[in-house]
Design a binder for these strands. Structure first.
Length: 361
DNA sequence: AATGCGGGGCA
DNA sequence: TGCCCAGCATT
C-alpha cells in the first residue's frame, strides 16, 4: 500500500511518546504477562477510567493466574459486577484455568498460543505479545483506527472486513519492530490524549503538518463507520416475592443479556402493562401458580440503555403468606445474603434506592 | 458478513 | 439523545 508520510508518522509518534507523553496507568510498562492480560481483558470496549479500579481489585484478589484459576465462578463474577460484557468474565476464567492446567501456570509465549486463549482476539494477542515479550505485532484498537484514518485520510469504514484488513496491514507497516511495546503504547496513548474522538488537540499535534484529515478539514468526520444498530425496547417486571426475610432469585442461564448474573422472578412483557394486568397475565400464572400474597407496591420504571436494547424494569414487591413454595429454577435466599450474588446494574440500582434490605424486611 | 453483548462519560 | 470506549464470539 503506497501512502505518504509513513516514516514521518512512526518517527514523530515515538518522539511525542518519549518527550511529551505523561500518561500513567497501573499496567503501563508492566512485564508480567498475567497482569497485562488481565488489564487487556478488562479494557476491552471499556474506558481506562472505568476499568482502572477493577484492575486494582482483581490484582489484589488474584495475584497470580493460579489464584484466579482456583476461584469460584460466582466469586469472580462478583468482582466483575458492574463492568458489563459478562462473557469476558467467563472467557477470562476459562483462559486462566487453561493456563493453570495446560501450561502449568506459565503464560504462553507465542502470538498464536496467546491468540488461542478464550476471550483473546487479534488486538489482545498483539498487546500481550508486544508488551510482555517484545514480539513485533501491531495493536489495532479503536484508538488506532481513529489515528490512522485521520492521519492517512482513509475513508474505508472500520466496521467492515475490508476496513479491518486495510487498517491491520497498515498498522503492521508502521510498527517499529525494534520497540514494538513502546510503539504500541504510544499510538494508543496518542489516540486517547491527542487524537481524541471529540475535540482532538490538533493545534498542539506534532503530526498535524502531515495529517491528511487535518489538512483537508475532515478530522471530525473520520473514522467512518457504516452500520447503524436497531435498538429494541424490552419491558421487565421483577417480582420480589418475600417470605420471612427471604427472597427468590435465580441465575440467568439463557443466551441473552446478563448471562451468569442473578435476578428476581422475571415476567417479561412485549409492551408496558399495569400492575393489575401483570397479575392477570399468563406469565404470572405460569411462574407463581397458586401463591398467596399481599402486594407491597410497584416501583417506578428503571430505564437502562444497553448497546442494542433499552431495558425498562419495574419491581413489584409481594409479601407471601403461609409457607414458602418451591419455585422451579429459583432459590430462596435470605435478604442479608444478597450481597453475595452478582446482579445487573438495573437491579443493584433498585436495591440501593429502595433500601430493600433496610426497611422492607 | 452480520449480530449481540454493558455500562459509563461526554457534548 | 447519540457516540464512543485498549473487542470478541457466534451464527
Amino acid at each position: 500500500m503506497k501512502r505518504a508520510g509513513k516514516a514521518f508518522f512512526t518517527e514523530n509518534l515515538l518522539i511525542w511518546n518519549s518527550e511529551i507523553n505523561t500518561r500513567n496507568m497501573p499496567w503501563k510498562g508492566e512485564k508480567d504477562p498475567y497482569r497485562i492480560w488481565l488489564s487487556e481483558i478488562i479494557l476491552q470496549q471499556t474506558r481506562v477510567e472505568q476499568g482502572w479500579p477493577y484492575y486494582e481489585r482483581f490484582i489484589k484478589a488474584y495475584p497470580t493466574v493460579n489464584h484466579l484459576a482456583r476461584a469460584s465462578d460466582d466469586e469472580v463474577f462478583r468482582h466483575w459486577q458492574g463492568l458489563g460484557y459478562y462473557n469476558r468474565c467467563r472467557n477470562m476464567l476459562a483462559a486462566a484455568r487453561t493456563i493453570s492446567k495446560d501450561y502449568q501456570g506459565q503464560f504462553p509465549h507465542t502470538y498464536e498460543s496467546i491468540l488461542a486463549l478464550k476471550g483473546v482476539g487479534a488486538y489482545t494477542a498483539a498487546a500481550i505479545a508486544s508488551f510482555a515479550y517484545g514480539l513485533p505485532h501491531a495493536v489495532v484498537d479503536g484508538n488506532v483506527y481513529r489515528v490512522l484514518a485521520r492521519y492517512f485520510g482513509i475513508q474505508t469504514p472500520t466496521d467492515t472486513t475490508e476496513g479491518k484488513k486495510e487498517f491491520t496491514l497498515l498498522a503492521g507497516e508502521l510498527l517499529d519492530k525494534t520497540q514494538s511495546a513502546a510503539y504500541n503504547q504510544a499510538i494508543m496513548d496518542f489516540g486517547a490524549v491527542v487524537c481524541k474522538p471529540q475535540q482532538p488537540a490538533c493545534s498542539s499535534c506534532p503530526l498535524s503538518t502531515q495529517c491528511l484529515a487535518y489538512q483537508t478539514g475532515r478530522v471530525e468526520q473520520l473514522p467512518l463507520k457504516t452500520k447503524k444498530i436497531m435498538i429494541r425496547q424490552r419491558f421487565f417486571y421483577y417480582i420480589i416475592l418475600i417470605y420471612n426475610k427471604q427472597v427468590y432469585i435465580r441465575k440467568r442461564k439463557e443466551k441473552d443479556i446478563w448471562q451468569n448474573l442473578h435476578e428476581f422472578i422475571l415476567l417479561e412483557q412485549p409492551c408496558p402493562v399495569t400492575q393489575a394486568e401483570l397479575l392477570a397475565s399468563e406469565g404470572y400464572r405460569a411462574a407463581l401458580p397458586g401463591v398467596s400474597f399481599k402486594v407491597e407496591g410497584l416501583s417506578a420504571p428503571y430505564k437502562q440503555q444497553l448497546t442494542h436494547q433499552t431495558i425498562i424494569a419495574q419491581f413489584l414487591t409481594l409479601r407471601g403468606k403461609g409457607r414458602a413454595p418451591a419455585l422451579e429454577g429459583y432459590q430462596l435466599v435470605p435478604q442479608s445474603m444478597l450481597n453475595d450474588y452478582a446482579f445487573p446494574k438495573t437491579i443493584t440500582s433498585y436495591l440501593e434506592k429502595s433500601a430493600l434490605g433496610l426497611t422492607l424486611f
